[in-house]
Design a protein around this nucleic acid. Structure first.
Length: 864
RNA sequence: GCGCGAUUAGCUCAGCUGGCUAGAGCAUCUGGUUUACACCCAGGGGGUCGGGAGUUCGAAUCUCUCAUCGCGCACCA
């Protein structure tokens, strides 16, 4: 005999190994004659598995298993991302702790070797953990963004974009991280709240306000709003006055972008260290000079007194200097503002004017739908025209908002770990090509933004730029499933890169899952100690339970709260699945099953009912899963197994089991459960005597010959009857020696299931009659117009109590009837509402009226 | 400032294109050693679907508005 619950700790790994051994994860042509592809978002090569990954793996695995069983040739391709900045920073920190050396002490080559070693180790961990989640991805196709072929693809992409004029090298203000010594993309900048001093300085004819005095050494332009009455008369004029480095001549210009309300409404600009100042300077053709160097220190060209000082030191010094010159008019403390920091390392971002590589998002050179479009336009078009659907749809607005504001994308990074830029310099000349153009040419030391390569993930992994069979077959992919937090970072970039490179969309659907939070809705974090380690709860509750807890009750785009009680409840469900099959195994006669055919004339009502319900469930599951409504599908199959199959079918049929029906229904249910809980169902499939893997079974199809609507109605009546008996017995506390009379009109299902009723409702004496007359010393329960239950009580019963009960029921029913009648007497309703709704209402009214009549008759009898 | 989301039972959440008297799990109460399952079985209590207005024959569902919470983007001289 098999044990009472699924021993996940010892069986999960074995089952997974069996899947691997049988090559279940590889694409195989199926009856759909079509492919279905998911590219797994590559986890960072440095990481370990967290709940975000676990949730992503659960969702994708459910989808891919469903599609595989449905007969698609499925490819789920796994891999890892080199995550340039994050990885380099992590390894550098580790090495510094260990040896006290930074990357420059090691040198580029040696340092990259250390990173490679570290990455290799991490990748193994991530792969092992991914397997633990039951992910049925094709490990033979595993890719890494720094694989040689993927590196080649990146280089090719860069060269093509350069030749098309989409990549250019230019001077722009970029986000510079002095700590990590690299540029950072706009999206990688985070803002931290801070309180600081806000200074007011006399600058020639005006007072200016600033929180950054240390950038003001060379300022000589005052900007005001053209409509500002306070300053209008100054516009265009020049003034000679004292400033930090001595006497200067400044000029007043006007610009619309000035906010009159802010500070004094007048400001000076430092174009080399501010995005907005740079824009103003460009518009007005002003010169710009650098004040702060890449280390975050003041340049001697800006100030002799402050040269070499840090920003903090220089700020103090500048204020001192201006105080001496009596140019400080006010200092306000506790000024609230936000400081830009690098989200990956926390260094404070200093805007710098630098020469970098950029992708031009506005140049209209991309061929798309027989037109020339800009990258920006293509990105808008594919979502607007529904080539790509984003789930939830509300995120499409977020996407468009982002695109509208999108600026040229700075793709060069001054770090070592990553894809080297294929550009060569010599005497101010630039050549973009794979190999060195010859003697004296030096390759650009910079590497590419990590999202440049991950943007190519759907096609670089399939062999692009070569037109491989894989690429032709599996691209575009079908669904991209990832967290909404990387919609811009990654999803948008994939659309940009893929449409340009391949002329195809990267995927048809974007499914954005929410973040996993704790029970209070707080983000899980190590410092708070509220995190759940997926591997720990897998150990405790099993992978199937963890997967369910990450999928059930979720919607795309909505955060998920996870806590142990929730996981435990799904562990209980896994046990329930186990025991329902265990029961079947104890009762099935395996020798006969293959030879048996379904003969509708020999089936009980319950048999027909469960076959009917199973067919409908197949239909429902298929529809919901095709629409990626995983939680709804999961909830429905959960309910079906637990209630319909276990609580009703098995209990009704216990004493009269039909081998074949039990087997058929259970098999279909296990198949439908499989995508959600692959381990326990696979094990049970084996115990049912199958040699083939469940995961390769065909998804069931609805069989119209197994629909029995009449029996469905009959069993529904039986269920109502049993529930009513149980309820009335509990109300009057008769657990032993219960005596029930069922009055009914032509209900064969009651006749044939007397034993079932006795057993399931625990009735000791049961009588049936077609006579609806009142019997003394009984409590009445009207189930349907055709079925009434009488509970016999020995002692004198409290007539008033029963009257009260019946009266309450009658009054509720009466209210209901009134509402229905009101509806039906409303012409607008009967004319405008759909016919089937009105018909339903009519029937409902009829049934309710009949039922009410019965109750009233009984009430009348009681009063006599 | 612009935008997005949430608000349904004590807790965590379902409820698709508006349509039977609003659901689940957990918790709670009552009663159960029924030979698949106490990680179980049976029964019960608990909600004016955040407030207000509107559209409609009909609103938890659509529109507007207010409130509270959360998030994103921009600005930050």
């Amino acid at each position: 005999m098999i044990p009472k619950s699924f021993d996940y700790n010892t069986l999960e790994d074995k089952i997974y190994q069996n899947w691997l051994k049988s090559k279940c994860f590889q694409p195989k042509p199926g009856k759909q004659n079509d492919t279905f592809t998911i590219m797994m978002p590559p986890p960072n090569a440095t990481g370990t598995l967290h709940l975000g990954h676990a949730s992503m793996l659960a969702i994708q695995d459910i989808i891919i298993r469903f599609k595989r069983m449905s007969g698609y040739e499925t490819l789920w391709l796994p891999g890892t991302d080199h995550a340039a900045i994050a990885t380099q920073d992590k390894v550098e920190n580790l090495q510094f702790q260990k040896t006290g050396k930074n990357r420059h002490d090691f040198g580029r080559e040696k340092f990259l070797q250390l990173v490679d070693e570290f990455v290799k180790q991490s990748q193994e961990t991530i792969v092992k953990q991914t397997k633990k989640m039951g992910a049925s991805c094709d490990w033979d196709q595993t890719k890494f963004t720094l694989d040689p072929e993927l590196q080649d693809a990146v280089t090719e992409m860069f060269i093509r974009m350069y030749n098309d004029g989409l990549i250019y090298r230019g001077d722009r203000v970029i986000n510079w991280d002095p700590k990590m010594q690299t540029t950072v993309a706009d999206d990688e900048v985070e803002y931290k709240e801070e309180y600081t001093n806000f200074y007011y300085f006399q600058f020639g004819p005006v007072v200016i306000g600033t929180s950054r005095p240390e950038t003001k050494f060379l300022d000589d332009t005052i900007v005001v709003h053209p409509e500002d009455q306070r300053y209008k008369h100054l516009i265009g004029k020049e003034f000679t006055h004292e400033w930090i480095n001595g006497e200067i001549t400044s000029k007043v210009i006007a610009d619309e972008s000035i906010d009159m309300e802010l500070g004094t409404g007048a400001m000076t600009i430092s174009p080399a260290h501010s995005f907005i100042d740079y824009e103003i300077a460009q518009k007005n053709d002003l010169k710009y000079e650098r004040i702060i160097d890449l280390e975050g220190k003041i340049l001697s060209s800006a100030s002799k007194e402050c040269a070499g000082m840090t920003i903090k030191e220089a700020r103090k010094k500048v204020v001192e200097i201006l105080k001496e010159k009596d140019l400080v008019t006010d200092i306000q403390n506790n000024y609230y503002h936000k400081v830009a920091v690098n989200y990956r390392g926390g260094g404070i971002i200093e805007p710098q004017l630098m020469e970098q590589w950029f992708i031009d998002v506005n140049k209209t050179v991309v061929d798309w739908k027989d037109q020339k479009m800009s990258l920006k336009q293509v990105m808008q078009d594919v979502v607007r025209s529904n080539d790509i659907e984003i789930l939830p749809n509300s995120q499409e607005n977020v996407y468009f908002n982002w695109i509208d504001k999108l600026q040229d994308w700075c793709i060069s990074r001054q770090i070592w770990y990553g894809h080297r830029i294929p550009a060569w310099f010599k005497d101010g000349e630039v050549k973009v090509q794979i190999d060195s153009p010859g003697e004296g040419w030096k390759q650009d030391p910079d590497t590419l933004d990590t999202w440049f390569s991950s943007g190519m993930w759907t096609f670089s992994t399939l062999g692009w730029p070569n037109q491989t069979e894989m690429l032709k077959k599996f691209h575009p992919t079908d669904v991209l499933e990832t967290g909404y937090d990387i919609l811009f970072f990654w999803v948008a970039r994939m659309i940009l890169m893929t449409t340009y490179a391949t002329g195809q969309i990267p995927f048809k659907t974007v499914y954005l899952h929410g973040l996993v939070r704790d029970k209070n809705g707080d983000k899980m974090s190590k410092s708070k100690g509220n995190g759940i380690d997926p591997l720990e709860v897998i150990q405790k509750y099993g992978t199937d339970a963890v997967r369910l807890s990450l999928v059930m009750g979720t919607r795309p785009g909505q955060d998920v709260r996870l806590f142990e009680e929730k996981i435990a409840s799904y562990r209980n469900f896994v046990t329930k699945i186990w025991n329902s099959t265990r029961f079947a195994l104890m009762n099935l006669d395996f020798d006969k099953i293959d030879k048996e055919e379904i003969d509708p004339t020999k089936l009980s009502e319950a048999d027909k009912w469960i076959l009917h319900e199973t067919q409908e469930m197949i239909q429902t599951q298929t529809e919901l899963l095709n629409q990626y409504r995983l939680s709804e599908a999961g909830t429905k199959i959960y309910d079906f197994l637990w209630n319909d199959f276990c609580s009703w079918y098995l209990e009704i049929s216990k004493k009269n089991l039909n081998n074949k029906v039990l087997y058929l229904a259970l098999s279909d249910i296990l198949k439908m459960l499989h995508p959600f809980v692959p381990f326990v169902t696979e094990e049970l499939w084996k115990l049912l005597g199958h040699k083939e893997m469940l995961m390769l079974e065909e998804w069931p199809e609805m069989n119209k010959n197994l629909l029995f609507p009449k029996e469905k109605e009959q069993i529904d009546n039986l269920k109502k009857t049993i529930t009513a008996i149980r309820s009335v017995m509990a109300d009057f506390d008769v657990s032993k020696d219960s005596h029930i009379t069922i009055q009914h009109k032509s209900q064969t299902v009651i006749e044939t299931n007397q034993d079932v009723i006795k057993h399931m409702a625990k009735v000791k004496t049961l009588e049936l009659t077609n006579d609806f007359k009142h019997i003394p010393k009984t409590i009445t329960q009207v189930v349907t117009p055709e079925i009434t239950i009488l509970l016999h009580l020995d002692q004198n019963i409290d007539l008033e109590a029963e009257k009260e009960k019946l009266s309450l029921e009658a009054s509720n029913l009466n209210n209901f009837i009134i509402s229905l009648e009101k509806k039906l007497s409303n012409k607008n309703y009967t004319e405008k509402a759909p016919e089937h709704i009105v018909e339903e209402t009519r029937q409902n009214l009829e049934t309710s009226q009949k039922k009410l009549t019965k109750i009233n008759q009984r009430l009348k009898a009681l009063s006599e």
